[in-house]
């Protein structure tokens, strides 16, 4: 395993900039998520690390080795795709042993190691099958075992769960997540699904328009988003304009004492739906619509100043129907203020 560093990486296609000067380090043994909307450059970044794209500027380093111009077959990188991309002309076992064969490992040993890996991902009994006989989840496990077999310096996962149904996806997230932890593999995990990234990753990089908007732990990017884009992309949020003066934060519909931002500032307050509660509060609002989601109710509430805020309510204790007037309590400790420059 290695530490992988992208040093002011830029990729341009003619006039279009796909990746715009990214500096990024995937630490040894860490699972780093790369999330962002489609076209943000996340797949280009992954393909550059794998060696299928040559950067226009910048370098790719595996530990201290500059691999920018090393061909993909000499990089020792594990790749897992959404489409599984298994070799249907080979058995499941031979798929997993393929990389070892390329490395010149002898037949007995590569059979043993491939079998071990198939056991590890939980499909040992399917070793002799044709990959097409397996279900989607099983095929993706083969893909993972195949990529891990070569003991890659970095494992690159490109939307590996996207084609799977919700329930299976949840289970694979947990399984693969703990497997990657256990094996301590340096991993870059590309996905458009922020929730998946939060489950799987130690840290997350949020990409937009070829630039990194923020890198941090899941909690950091959720609770303290660096800007409005991150706040909006990661989870649901209400962006409320805020004024801070003399230790007081004025959100327009309510004012709170705060300690950690003493100076005067104007900006946007990011209020998560879970920061609100229905109770004896000082914010009055009318429920405009509500969606029952099982473990919570998501409601949009219109405040007296005309703002609509999204609120997450507990269905067992907080009863609110469309058209009701409710009184809300806001916990200001969860509110994060982005200061406008």
């Amino acid at each position: 395993m290695s530490e992988v560093t992208l040093d002011s990486l830029t990729k341009r296609y003619d006039e279009e900039v796909a990746v715009d000067g990214i500096d990024l380090t995937v630490r040894d043994g860490e699972v780093l998520g790369v999330i962002g909307p489609s076209g943000c450059g996340k797949t280009t970044t992954l393909r550059t690390i794998a060696g299928f794209e040559t950067p226009t500027e910048g370098r790719v380093l595996f530990d201290d080795d500059d691999v920018t111009h090393v061909p993909p077959e000499d990089r020792n990188v594990g790749l897992v795709f959404q489409s599984y991309a298994l070799f249907n002309n080979m058995s499941v076992l031979d798929n997993v042993a393929f990389g070892l064969k390329m490395q010149g490992v002898d037949k007995e040993e590569r059979r043993d190691r491939a079998n071990e890996l198939l056991e590890l991902v939980g499909i040992g009994e399917h070793a002799e099958k044709d990959p097409r006989q397996l279900s989607g989840g099983q095929q993706q496990r083969v893909g993972l075992a195949r990529a891990l077999a070569i003991e890659p310096r970095i494992l690159l996962l490109d939307e590996p769960m996207t084609g799977l149904d919700a329930k299976l996806k949840k289970r694979l997230e947990e399984e693969i997540g703990s497997l990657l932890d256990e094996l301590n593999v340096t991993t870059l995990y590309v996905t458009h699904d922020q929730e998946e990234a939060m489950v799987m990753c130690d840290r997350i990089a949020v990409l937009n328009d070829g630039r990194i908007e923020q890198i941090g732990t899941p909690a950091e990017i959720y609770e303290r988003p660096a800007n409005a884009f991150v706040a909006d992309f990661v989870g649901t949020s209400n962006a409320v304009s805020a004024t801070i003066e003399d230790g007081r934060m004025d959100l327009g519909f309510a004012t709170y004492d705060i300690d950690d931002i003493p100076e005067t500032a104007e900006g946007t307050a990011i209020v998560r739906p879970g920061d609100f509660r229905v109770g004896e509060g000082d914010i009055e609002g009318v429920v405009r619509d509500r969606y029952y989601l099982g473990d919570r109710v998501r409601a949009r509430i219109e405040l007296p100043n005309g703002d609509l805020v999204t609120v997450a309510l507990d269905p067992s204790t907080e009863n609110a129907r469309t058209g009701d007037t409710v009184s809300l309590v806001l916990d200001p400790s969860g509110v994060h203020v982005l200061r406008s420059e």
């Binding site: 794998a50 060696g51 299928f52 061909p71 993909p72 077959e73 000499d74 990089r75 020792n76 990188v77 594990g78 790749l79 795709f81 489409s83 991309a85 298994l86 070799f87 393929f98 990389g99 390329m102 490395q103 893909g143 195949r146 990529a147 070569i150």
Partner: peptide, 12 residues
Amino acid sequence: QIEESARSLGAS
């Protein structure tokens, strides 16, 4: 993707 998988596994 099939081709890229094979290349990443060390095949020319």
